[in-house]
Write a protein that binds this DNA or RNA. Structure first.
Lengths: 272, 272
DNA sequence: TGGAGGGTTGACGCAGCGTCATGGTCAAGC
DNA sequence: GCTTGACCATGACGCTGCGTCAACCCTCCA
């Protein structure tokens, strides 16, 4: 007659595990000796080893009991189910590994590679690190909203970077983000460029859907730098509401809306 | 400003998950509105998406916080660690799948294929299903105690099945296991065969170690059929203690120990 | 006789949320 | 103003397979 420790050692498990199997009714409680110790016979050893070999094969404890006294067809069916579970679990982990392989660099977090390439280009034309991060976060929002769409429009975005107005926009924007002073005349220049882009997009008939994503991207810059509020006000003066997806205002409060400021060639322009 | 539900929907997670991230300090608690509702800005959306993409890549929540504000080398190192974890997890599941593939038939539970082949041979020579199961359980005990050893001795065991005495042993044993009557003259015959085998093993100088495993296999048959007690008594009369690993008694109580009953050729004989 | 090394029950902890339970809030229709 | 349904809040238990105390009892050996 074995004690629980001897039983556990023979089967290669811990005492705690054996007690657990008792608790969930997987292994029947044996008789106790005079001092209350559990005493096990050979049958218990065999049962425990069977349990362990099933558990080691990935069978959940809750099903091992049924499997141990199932007839061959039921057993085979159960085996198929377990194998299916294991397969999809492995598949999940494989995709996880694929994901994590893409995280080699910080930029690729939640973003397709096209965007990280675009961000690198931004750095090349003189965008500051903070600017690139802001841009990246904007694209994260867009990519989450329309997965796949981002890849389609990335070529257009890259082409835009050939436009000197856009380059200027990123450069001045970067300088602004870095210098923490309050009001700044450069905001006017940025507003002019943005209004020009808006005018052009409007003229080309581009129609973006009304979507929460654009509001979020707008809000993102405001949260990143409060001076963006001032920028939005300047844009409103020029007849535009919002800057990610600008809408022409009915009657501009300050001066008439015209597009003489910044003719830019590329048609679409969401974040940035 | 988004409510928790809108935030969760945008990031493709459940409300409960967002609250969980708050609870563990992964996502900072936002301001509340007048009625106590949480209100989220765009930054929270971005953070949540980042969290989800890391979690989706298999990063444990407890590490995501550090990874989000780690410098590139630390980030890369963390990525390597995660990938290692994932790899070994996958490996574990793969071996589980290999295990479960071997469970196609009930016999192969916790047993190497050599043994299941031996069990099939037993059926062929007329062993009953209960006998085969008892034999199988014995081998489970032995295989658990000395993994690998079983494969080595299986050829010898198979050879033994050519011996008519052994065949007779299994056949009479099977008949006994099936017929539930009390005392039975066939026990004498079995005892004679066993004593003969023991004598032969002893003469061949085979020396098995003193090990719990043999006691367990002995006990197994006793638990499977109480009449085995009687068999052991008969064996003792013939000068042997135990039957799996028989030891010659100092002075046989009933009659002198001789080996004239059953000359069997094969040298080793553990369970069965 | 005392200490080491077993055994006993009971309870919390882990990861990542799902799922009630119970109650307040909001927007819309009557 | 009232109801209804959808959403928000907190709090707590559940799941998986045990690990790890805590506090106490039993046995054996020097």
């Amino acid at each position: 007659m074995l004690t629980i420790g001897q039983l556990a050692a023979y089967a290669g498990v811990t005492v705690r595990a054996v007690r657990h199997y008792h608790q969930i009714g997987l292994l029947p409680e044996p008789e106790r000796d005079a001092s209350g110790y559990r005493r096990y016979g050979a049958t218990a050893v065999v049962s425990l080893i069977k349990i362990r070999s099933l558990a080691g094969a990935g069978v959940p404890l809750s099903q091992i009991g049924q499997m141990l006294d199932a007839d061959p067809p039921a057993f085979a069916e159960a085996v198929r189910r377990i194998d299916g579970r294991l397969r999809e679990e492995i598949e999940r982990l494989e995709t996880s590994r694929a994901q994590i392989a893409r995280l080699a660099t910080g930029d690729s977090l939640a973003l397709p590679p096209e965007v990280t390439f675009f961000l690198d280009r931004l750095r090349e034309i003189g965008a500051s690190e903070r600017m690139v991060e802001a841009e990246r976060d904007g694209w994260i929002l867009v990519a989450a909203r329309w997965p796949g769409y981002v890849r389609d429009i990335m070529p257009g975005k890259l082409a835009q970077l050939e436009d000197p107005h856009i380059v200027r926009l990123y450069q001045v924007g970067s300088a602004l983000l870095e210098s923490g002073t309050g009001d700044d005349p450069r905001l006017e220049e940025i507003a002019d460029i943005l209004a020009g882009l808006a005018e052009q997009a409007h003229a080309s008939g581009e129609l973006l859907p009304d979507d929460l994503a654009y509001d979020l991207v707008d809000a993102l810059l405001v949260e990143a730098d409060p001076r963006s509020e001032r920028l939005l006000a300047l844009l409103r003066e020029r007849g535009w509401a919002g800057w990610t997806r600008p809408e022409r205002l009915a009657q501009p409060p300050g001066r008439p809306a015209d597009a003489s400021h910044a003719p830019a060639p590329a048609p679409d322009h969401r974040p940035g």
